[in-house]
Amino acid sequence: MDVTADANPRFDLSSALSLVKSIYSLVIVLVLWEAVAQLGLIHYYFLPPLSDIIMRFVELTLNGQMLYNAYLTLMRAMVGLAIASVFGVLVGVLSAQNDLVDWFFDPIIKIGYPVPIISLIPVFMLWFGIGDISKIIMVAVGTFWPVAINARDSTRQVETKLLWSAKMMGTSDRRLLWRVVMPAAMPGILTGFQIAMPLSLIITFVFEMVAGGGGLGALEIAGVRSFESTQVYAAIIAIMLIGIALDRLLRMARGRLLHWT
């Protein structure tokens, strides 16, 4: 969104040049990939030609499989993340505001955060089965920690003088949370979401790979099991697109919400 660029008459040429500079390596690698695969220098199973993968991607998209599995993955990750966001922000903000809550949660967060959350997947399979609910709860539990910790720390770090300013202008202690603490802590809270978002996808993929039940992770593993490597690659393309889209979306949301920073 560079406004000044429009005023520059050489904008098109220079931007085209910089585009070439920045993607030529990708083009080389992709062309090499296609050539090597077409010539059969690498076994089809390891590295199918790019064109085959794209055909497969289109096929899976047109027959609805890709969209359905992407929907399953996204639904699990996002619902889990939404639950974690509510509880994480609640616990984080309360911890920062209340000594008793902090006393209770601090050691739990200290112990809980370093647990490689993925290792709990078999536990969740035992407790809640292998269905959507189990996956969603797993995502919620796993993404709770970064959300809570960022919410807590950013709430704690709100400048005392901002609070004082509000108080001198007549803000009561009860309203201080909404009027000052939350807006001031918002950048840190959003950072927590930005950390938690990829984590929600990681947990969902691994759970799907281990336990099945549809989703892009399961689609990949099915590809491995049936020796259809094009399906694995096609699923990874979809994952990449989703990853890029979500990343963009979060950045845009951050830009919108925090245009004042």
Partner: peptide, 24 residues
């Protein structure tokens, strides 16, 4: 210039999604 585009493309992929590829 050479590596930037690869980082930009792989950055948003959760790396655990690449386990099946690594198995291949």
């Amino acid at each position: 210039n050479f590596f930037d585009v690869f980082l930009a493309m792989t950055y948003p992929i959760p790396k655990t999604a690449l386990v099946p590829l690594a198995i291949l």
